Simulated scan of single mutants.
Amino acid sequence: MQSKAQIDQVLRQKCEAKEIPGVVAMAATGKEVIYQGAFGQRDLSKDDAMTADSVFWIASMTKAITAAAGMQLVEQGKLSLDEPIGKVLPDLAAPQVLEGFDASGEPRLRPASKPITLRHLMTHTAGFAYNMWNGDMVQYLEKTGLPPITSCQNAALKTPIMTDPGTRWEYGTNIDFVGKAVEAASGKRLDAYLRDHLFTPLGMSDTGFKIGDAQRQRLVAMHARGEDGSLAAIPFELEQEPEFHMGGGGLYGTAADYIRFTQMILNKGKGNGNQVLKPETVALMGQNHIGELSMGKMISVTPPYTNDVDLYPDMVKKWGLSFLINTAKTPEGRSPGSLAWAGLANTYYWIDPARDIAGVILMQLLPFADGKCLEAFAGFERGVYAGLDAAGQKAA
């Protein structure tokens, strides 16, 4: 790929300038990996160089995998996109909407106007929020003493919704409930279900909720960016014996494993010789499922964890069954109708079926939507499309 040197230069320069600690990036067509690079360090407090097989917390890149598992069960008739999910998850049978707080700071709740469905959960329109982008949620957790979702305690799921189901897009804990629905419908814990029905068939041997001994040798440290822009390694690890496996953000994995997942989407449900989803299911997952609603700007209320998130501010953004969908061509070259999302520690992916290309770029630092990380991502993606365009001209 003739743009390989161009991508290498962008990513190496970011690491050498200590703008990012380290990075692994991979791009692939449905058939083959066309770019792979690893630069910088796994941990700025140690000497280990980043390697292509380094293990990252992929956080909300977990969501698409959990949704794919849910769609396998929809195919089998064990789950339904539009039946009330309360039939499967009794805890969601009578959702309460948080209307605000009274003069003494007590939450004011009312019953939701309609039931929550699996489709609402997969599209972030059920009403659940993350405290990182919702001040009322911060206040509710403080008032009730409920643990945060990253605790992986069941009590963390006992929150009200912020709006009636289906009325607005708001990023939140929705996909954790999809994970719970997978467990209820399959009779297996989420880790075992994903291993048996996605990871093993697709050859994703380095992905899981629990960090194995082999993975720990290659684990990338979390870093935090200080107010002066400097980076330092910080202690961070998800609970390794969780009460529930966080289907919305609990997985650790490698770029090579995640590329296999994206290739399965490009290949209409087939990967590693195994058909894990029907072609029509994959097509369905990539369509707009929120109608006239759109994804808005996510305003941070927890600056240490996330910046404001305003991707392609001038573009209408839709949502599929767990994917962000861009409705116009992006500055980097991504086709309209492509699928994408990210993880809190600055991990990103995109899948462009129109051009048969997908990319994954993994970094490990907070806060999310970090400017330097987004520059690295954009440089990588631009280089991938420049290579595709050059190859296309040569072929012509």
Rank of each mutant, 00 (worst) to 15 (best):
A5Q: 12
R12W: 02
C15T: 03
V24T: 13
V24I: 11
M26A: 14
F39A: 13
T51Q: 15
A64Y: 02
T66L: 07
A67Y: 00
D82M: 07
D82A: 07
P84I: 14
P84Q: 12
V88G: 04
P90Q: 04
A94C: 07
P95H: 07
V97S: 05
F101E: 05
F101V: 06
A103H: 06
R108M: 14
T125V: 10
A126F: 05
G127F: 11
W133D: 08
V138M: 05
K143N: 00
L157E: 04
T163A: 15
D164S: 10
G166D: 01
R168G: 09
R168K: 14
E170N: 11
E170I: 15
F177H: 03
V178T: 05
G179F: 06
K180C: 10
V182Q: 08
A184V: 10
S186E: 07
L198H: 07
K210L: 05
I211H: 11
R218W: 03
V220I: 00
V220F: 02
L231R: 00
F236P: 09
P242R: 12
Y252D: 13
N274R: 14
V282D: 03
V282Y: 05
G286W: 10
E292N: 15
L293T: 02
M295W: 07
M298Y: 01
T306M: 13
V316T: 14
K318D: 11
G320N: 12
G320H: 12
F323K: 01
L324F: 15
L324I: 12
N326I: 00
A328R: 14
A328S: 09
G337V: 01
S338V: 00
W341F: 14
Y349T: 11
W350G: 01
I361K: 03
F368W: 08
A376T: 03
G379T: 02
G383L: 10
G383K: 06
